[in-house]
Amino acid sequence: MSRMAPSTPSRLAAYTDAVFAVIITIMVLELRPPAEPTWAGFLDLWPTVVSYVVSYAFVAIIWMNHHYLMTYITTPSLKLLWLNFGHLFCVSFLPFATAWLAESELAQVPVIFYAVLFVATDGMYNLFEAEILKHAAEFSAESYRAARRRSLFAFLLFVVAVGLAIVDNWLGFGFICLALALHLRPDATPLRRRKRRRNDADS
């Protein structure tokens, strides 16, 4: 009997892409047209629109960060595979949280749950990122520390968002959007890798 081929980054990325695609599809299927064919009817759907846009941006940011991290993996370890499954487990609750947020018109408890979900998801991402970058030989120690500081700061903002949501749901939701903005530029990109190689060549 032939031995099973080792896991590859492409297989890990393909599975993750499929999960993200399903999550986005579920969120889209939750969208409903306005009851009245008027602008007023459309504006009544603002909680749905806001919830969907923020959640879609979250999925897009997660995917982009995940995409760039894949460039630093040769063969995924068992620990890394479980961290990825844990990360996807948290992300899989996003359609439920988004629907609850929209139907409640951003009420306090759904916003708190939404913020807690972001904390859990970003926490798992931080573990996933740290596991990859600490084993990436081409990723400099300085770049590693900078990426980790940025990721941990964004994670702290999500934690703060939970506390603020307990006091004021809109303030908490605003902090969630702020934390997402920090992730628009991925922590680990091929640019860092090329810069490191140029520095090594010059030295």
Rank of each mutant, 00 (worst) to 15 (best):
F139A: 04
S77T: 07
M1V: 00
T16L: 09
I61P: 10
E105H: 12
S92T: 06
S143W: 08
V109S: 13
V19Q: 03
L157N: 00
A136S: 06
N126Q: 10
S92Q: 09
L157I: 03
F118I: 07
F113G: 14
F85L: 15
Y114V: 01
A14S: 07
L31K: 03
V50N: 06
F175M: 11
E105I: 03
P33V: 02
A165K: 13
A137L: 04
L43K: 15
E30G: 00
R32L: 08
A120R: 00
Y56H: 09
P47I: 05
A181F: 15
A146N: 07
Y52I: 06
L191V: 08
I166F: 15
G163Y: 06
T75E: 11
A120H: 01
N169E: 13
N169H: 14
L152M: 05
L94K: 01
I26F: 09
T98S: 06
H135W: 04
S55R: 12
R11T: 05
F42C: 07
P37E: 05
F128I: 00
R198M: 14
N126T: 08
A60I: 08
S140G: 03
L83E: 12
V54D: 12
L12V: 09
I24W: 05
I23A: 10
E138Y: 10
Q108S: 05
A97Y: 13
R198W: 15
L94H: 01
V22H: 08
A188H: 08
R197P: 00
L117V: 02
Y144G: 02
A5W: 10
R150L: 07
T16G: 07
V53W: 10
V91D: 04
T189Q: 13
A97T: 01
L45S: 11
H135A: 03
A99N: 01
A165I: 03
A188C: 14
L43N: 14
W82R: 15
P33E: 06
L80A: 05
K79S: 12
A18V: 01
L171G: 10
M124Y: 09
L133P: 05
P110N: 01
L106V: 01
E138Q: 08
L182H: 02
V109N: 13
L184F: 12
F158A: 06
H135P: 00
C177P: 00
L101W: 02
P33C: 02
R194G: 10
H183L: 14
G86L: 13
K134R: 14
T8D: 07
D122M: 11
A154G: 09
Y72C: 15
Y52C: 04
A57D: 04
F158T: 01
C177A: 15
H67P: 15
R149C: 04
Y144R: 10
V59E: 05
W170Y: 11
R192E: 15
L152K: 01
S140Q: 05
E129H: 00
S151I: 01
T74C: 14
M27Q: 12
R11P: 00
